[in-house]
């Protein structure tokens, strides 16, 4: 137990991402309303983004914008451990914007389903298909 607590504490970013991911997964499977499923999907997505972003964090570092860096001849000696890892930020930046466009497509499909079946509850849609 004595070394169990530091283990939990040192990785609490992973536990946060894990809990959000499981909430999203459960919502996607168990919820009956399709809009709730879509929201669960975006929670799942942001859990993964949280995981990536927290991987790029370094202890005692600063944001990935270089100090004294203006124009062509600004660079002093740069120590990589002073700046947060920019690569996960780049990947996740585009993932967020693509995420909102997939959300738009999902909502469009949802409105189309509502137009055809008159409901977005899963069980009622199944009944309406069987008729």
């Amino acid at each position: 137990m004595a070394d169990f607590l530091p283990y939990i504490v040192a990785k609490y970013n992973y536990w946060a991402a894990l809990v959000l991911l499981l909430i999203g997964l459960y919502g996607m499977i168990a919820k009956n309303n399709l809009l709730k499923k879509v929201i669960a999907m975006s929670i799942f997505q942001s859990a993964i983004i949280l995981f990536y972003v927290s991987m790029g964090d370094k202890k005692g570092s600063t944001i990935p914008i270089l100090l004294h860096g203006h124009g062509e001849h600004g660079a002093l000696a740069i120590d990589p451990s002073q700046y947060a890892n920019p690569l996960p930020h780049v990947l996740m930046l585009t993932a967020i914007v693509v995420g909102v466009s997939t959300l738009g497509v999902a909502l469009a499909v949802l409105q189309k389903i509502h137009r055809v079946h008159g409901t977005i509850e899963e069980d009622e849609i199944l009944e309406s298909i069987e008729e």
Binding site: I49, G56, S61, M92, L93, I96, V97
Partner: peptide, 15 residues
């Protein structure tokens, strides 16, 4: 707070 300012800016505008 995790130093990802660009990601945070995008999320504030988009999300």
């Amino acid at each position: 707070e995790m130093l990802a300012v660009d990601v945070a800016f995008t999320e504030a505008a988009v999300g």
